[in-house]
Design a protein around this nucleic acid. Structure first.
Lengths: 311, 311, 311
DNA sequence: ATAGGTTTTGTCAAGCTTTTGTACAT
DNA sequence: ATGTACAAAAGCTTGACAAAACCTAT
């Protein structure tokens, strides 16, 4: 049974539709205990079938969940029941959490390794709800990608695992990227050089930059310089970021890049972006991790802006 | 047989065209069970051939599928049938192929009603990953909050349910709000007037405004005007937004608000923000839903900005 | 009288006047059965020669073909005949109010062309909130992608526009894909062959298949067959889908694919998947649009499942 | 928690009828 | 060509049954 069906099956009206077994399965409270709570505290008053079976409704389910949360919060069952029946709001308990970061990071690695999408997504959810996007990217995602590359090179990991993990992370990053073209902030065009198909780092960079209020125009993998230049001319972004893992990629298109750099600020990134390449192409070099890089670009731009205003 | 032919073969009108074997093949429910459901629950009322063979129509097929979904969702057959028969006033209503938006929205409501945090979070996850933040806020969250309020007034919903839902949604909105003070965009100070404890609308507004690149300084519920004014003086935001559900709240602090409005653009929002209040306090009125409101504020600000540049 | 003579003996009484034997040969329905249908259901009312021979026209042939299609679609003969005689033109599933659909589709195209992320996202939101996922994919996204390809070939569109649009759509599809590895349904491994970097079609297929309850393991672009095989061995999916736009891609790996096809059902798709390739590699061919293809795979699997259970 | 009894629900079987494609005699 | 016959396939009704789920009470 999949989740949607189960949820569909819970209409929020009327007399009661769930038999005790299903209610038990849904809430995790045993049928015996459900009957006990009914008898002892009158917590529930299910309707009955002609034959005598109990039938519970959505309100009953809510009451049970409330009961669970109160009891697990330390209240005695009788008190919890009284509280619920009196209609008082619950004192909410806040589960405090300590250093989940490393734990969840390990979790994520393990989940991705065994192609368990659900577990990996859950781990990412927990991470994103406990830490800032920047922290998760910088301390979990990027390091993970590095290790993924290394493990792949050593043959510790199959291509399939690598693909699976990349695709899942790409999906999450694109989720964070949603709407990153909106707004009034400075614009940035992001592109991978022709032949380059690794885009996760660039995506992470884009997300981090967006978080600082920038407007992102994302061209993605394998983008011809000419196309980037066209767009740059019409959109006049504050910066163009070109990424490649291979230095030769940059050198092969050195002339075009240099040309582009005369019209707009061009920044090069990725393992292929070396000081030498930057010198050759008259561009700026970005060799930090994506999140720091976004910080630097942002700072740079604002100070330059400030200077302009001052003068 | 290909798909089109099969669909062609299922006209959705009239007396019925499928014999029991074919219906069984299509739905995966055995002929015996189909007859049992008919006899026991009157779930189907097929027409008959002269010789007595049952003939089913598309509506019957839909009913069977609904039945399957409910039963696989844990309902007992009798209850599932009752539900289907009760919820079907029109002979031919919409087949359950609703869009994900409606489906998940209904899902969210049901989950929140029965205090099922996990299911509610999952529904929100699906919504946020399938739709823009703006759409989810405008078409799901805000309408839900309205209905929540109405249902609460009518007593259709318990205090616990209302608290549960509010807290969960607040958590999600705060998640979206993460890092919203960063960046270079125009700043906005958001605050609820003293005594005002409803902040969800204001949060949604903040999120929408952030998505347009603004920098949000959020003071939250029950904020003294003096504190707002202090911060406004030091941070010089482009706009200050004051919210309250109660007109008197505004009027009680009219003088302070008017004073504040002389130093910075002040906008009032919430059900308590009436044209009269705006006139009294020399402020601007924002009476749309939070997402549209954010759009208006943003547009206003950029045009004013443009004008300034032009002049 | 031999065949030729018989035909010669049939003077042109006008276009399309057929005697029963010829009609039988054309439609594959035996003369006896044709007469039976005429008598029992009045399905046909052929004119007669002076000697009493039946003469059928084109309309009769059409009726027979319709009858065949309906019957092979599961209808009983009597019902099929009734349907045909009732004179309705095949109640096809009509796309609801095609106007909004087309309008928003045009909107989407325009937005994407001018790199307006916000507008494009909004258009997609409206589409997804008004129509089924299947409808939007089949009637908007897939056609759009086709046109995109064509326009790109003709040079009507810049590479940058193509990249931008692809990335945005990919983001949305991945959003819909969220959680698609979960659940209990049959599993499918999806991969593009080595060298193939177009994945949007495959993503759409995955989304559609997920909507039917399948569990998706997505390997994405440029996946070595070896990796696919590894995973297939350990996960034992119900089907493996390989996609490529280039027939040579398939042929280059024909041996590996054939090997894989011995262990698990392999289906090939994409423009490169030709009947010839399928024969060569002992795989099944999928040449419909992604959404229909998902339907076919799903039906195939359930019927095969049924058969197995029955035997 | 267990024991002993009841309800619910899917499945099966027996004996008979209808439907439908095909065969045969005139 | 016609009309009738026939047999396989598919269906109908009634009745029964057993596993699963549920009840009460100890």
């Amino acid at each position: 049974m999949n989740e949607e069906e189960r949820q569909q099956a819970t209409p929020d009206l009327g007399p009661g539709y769930l038999r005790i077994g299903e209610l038990a399965k849904r809430t995790g409270v045993s049928p015996e205990l459900l009957r006990a709570w009914e008898q002892r505290y009158k917590l529930l008053q299910p309707t009955r079938t002609a034959g005598g079976f109990r039938l519970y409704g959505a309100a009953d389910e809510a009451r049970i969940r409330r009961m669970q949360s109160l009891v697990s919060g330390g209240l005695a069952a009788a008190q919890a029941a009284r509280l619920i029946l009196s209609g008082e709001p619950a004192p909410r308990t806040v589960p405090a959490s300590a250093t989940i970061l490393d734990e969840e990071a390990a979790n994520l690695t393990a989940s991705l390794d065994r192609l368990d999408e659900q577990a990996a997504s859950a781990a990412l959810d927990r991470l994103f709800s406990a830490y800032t996007v920047e922290t998760v990217l910088q301390d979990v995602v990027i390091p993970y990608l590095h290790r993924l590359g290394e493990r792949w090179e050593v043959g510790e990991i199959s291509v399939a695992q690598e693909h699976f993990a990349s695709n899942l992370l790409r999906g999450r990053l694109l989720g964070l990227a949603q709407g990153w073209g909106q707004g009034q902030g400075p614009g940035a065009i992001l592109a991978c050089l022709p032949g380059e198909h690794h885009e996760l780092g660039l995506l992470a960079f884009g997300v981090a930059l967006r978080r600082r209020g920038w407007r992102i125009i994302y061209l993605g993998t394998d983008s011809p310089i000419g196309a980037v230049a066209d767009i740059a001319r019409s959109l006049r972004p504050a910066v163009v970021v070109l990424m490649s893992m291979n230095p030769d990629s940059f050198l092969d298109h050195a002339r075009q890049i240099e040309q582009l750099a005369k019209q707009v600020q061009v920044v090069i990134a990725g393992r292929g972006a070396t000081p030498e390449v930057a010198r050759h192409t008259q561009t700026h070099l970005l060799d930090q991790d994506p999140v720091s890089a976004a910080g630097i670009i942002d700072r740079d731009h604002s100070t330059r802006d400030d200077d302009r205003r001052r003068s």
